[in-house]
Computed example of a mutant assay.
Amino acid sequence: MSNATQHSPVEAVSSTPSALGGLQQIAPGVLRLRLPLSNVFLLGDPGGPWVLVDAGTPGSAGMIRRAAEQHFGRESAPQAIVLTHGHLDHIGALHALLRCWPGVKVYAHALEQPYLTGQSAYPPPDPTVGGSMSALSPLFLPGPFDFQPHIHALPWPSDVAALDGWEVVNTPGHAPGHISLWRRADRTLIVGDAFVTTVQESLPAALTLRPHRVHRPPAYYTPDWEAARVSVERLAALHPQIAVTGHGDPLKGPVLTQELEQLAAQFDQKARPAQGRYVSRPAVTSRDGVLILPPLTARGQAVKWTGIGLVLLVLTGLMWRLRSDGGTTEP
């Protein structure tokens, strides 16, 4: 898929406010939709064929459909959905979207497919790496998720016009079959969670998208730090002009280049957690799913149950609020 349509690099990432549910033009044919705690991307030109990259958080299907109708027209379904990986915050609205777009194929790396076809859960999140989001990570269910018969293996077929010019870059570590998308013509990179541009381990930072800088993959859901290091090095070697990530605002130009090169060169010092379940020993996975998990220490067990208690408090508060408001959430 490397015969690229020639796009000239944009001079700056759009300054349009990244409000929830709002579309932000990033590069020609690349729009970012900010959702609660994550981003999805719409690739294509108005009125033409388009592709959705990732499928957002649970409850965000309506926001995604409205954004698609705004840009591509009513009743416009994507040619395909491409998943950078299958963690809950990237597939949370997928079932609801597929009910609206029943004929759409979903593409993912072969090493992601056990977690998307009901065969295996992901390695469980690690609440011991530090940060408020990490403590809440038991809320982010590891699956298994089942989207059959919609799941198909990469690469996508050549007739998916909206992906002309985009290449798959294998970037495992945060997930076994994690991928990024690279458009060589204008050096635009859709990263997924191989790195992000906010401190995702902190709930305030995850909500406000600050600080605005290159940061490691979300630590609480990264089960292989050595593979994650190699993936960051691979992306830094591309020298992207623009990078858009699963969490945080886009970055471009010299700031992106410098910070990404620093992360790659000093990954163990800047990215690898000082403690955590997967820091010394990764989860072992295969095409069948998870094979071996490193044990959780006694301290880790205590942190895990504390996190589960926090999750139960959050869920109880949400349920009470919904009942008191008499409201419902959109699927």
Rank of each mutant, 00 (worst) to 15 (best):
V169N: 08
L256N: 02
L181A: 04
V214T: 15
L207I: 12
D159H: 13
P176V: 01
S180K: 03
T197V: 13
R213G: 03
D193T: 07
I242G: 03
D193G: 01
E226Q: 14
P157H: 04
V169Q: 15
Q200V: 08
L189P: 09
V214F: 14
Y220P: 00
P172W: 10
V230H: 13
L251A: 06
A219K: 07
L163W: 03
H150N: 03
G192V: 11
W156I: 11
T198M: 15
A243F: 01
A206S: 15
H239K: 12
P223Y: 05
Q241A: 13
H174I: 00
P176M: 05
R187I: 04
Q258D: 09
V191W: 04
W225R: 02
F195A: 04
A219I: 00
W156D: 10
V160P: 07
A206T: 10
T257F: 02
P254T: 10
R184A: 15
S158Q: 11
A194C: 10
T222F: 06
P218R: 09
T208W: 05
H212P: 08
W166P: 04
R229G: 09
I151P: 01
R234A: 14
P218H: 09
Q258W: 00
V232H: 07
P223I: 05
N170I: 03
E167M: 09
V230L: 14
P149R: 02
S180W: 08
Q241W: 15
D224F: 09
V230K: 13
T188I: 01
H174C: 02
Q200S: 13
Q200K: 08
S231F: 04
T208E: 00
I242F: 00
V214R: 15
A237F: 02
R234H: 07
V168E: 12
R213N: 04
W156T: 12
G246R: 09
P155M: 07
T171F: 03
V169H: 09
D224E: 12
D249S: 03
A194R: 02
H150F: 03
H174R: 00
R216N: 10
K252E: 08
P149C: 02
A161E: 14
Y221A: 14
L235Y: 10
A153W: 09
P157T: 05
W225P: 02
G173K: 10
G165P: 04
R216A: 14
R216C: 08
I151S: 03
I190Q: 04
Q200W: 09
I190C: 05
A153D: 15
V230P: 00
T245F: 02
L256I: 00
G192C: 11
G177P: 03
K252N: 05
W166A: 01
V230A: 14
P149A: 00
L209R: 12
A206D: 01
W166C: 01
G192S: 12
I179K: 08
P149Q: 05
A153F: 06
S231L: 07
T222C: 15
V169R: 15
P223Q: 09
S180R: 08
P155I: 03
I190W: 02
T208C: 06
G165C: 02
L163A: 08
H247E: 01
V214E: 15
V244E: 06
Y220L: 03
V160G: 05
P217R: 00
A161H: 10
G253A: 04
H152S: 13
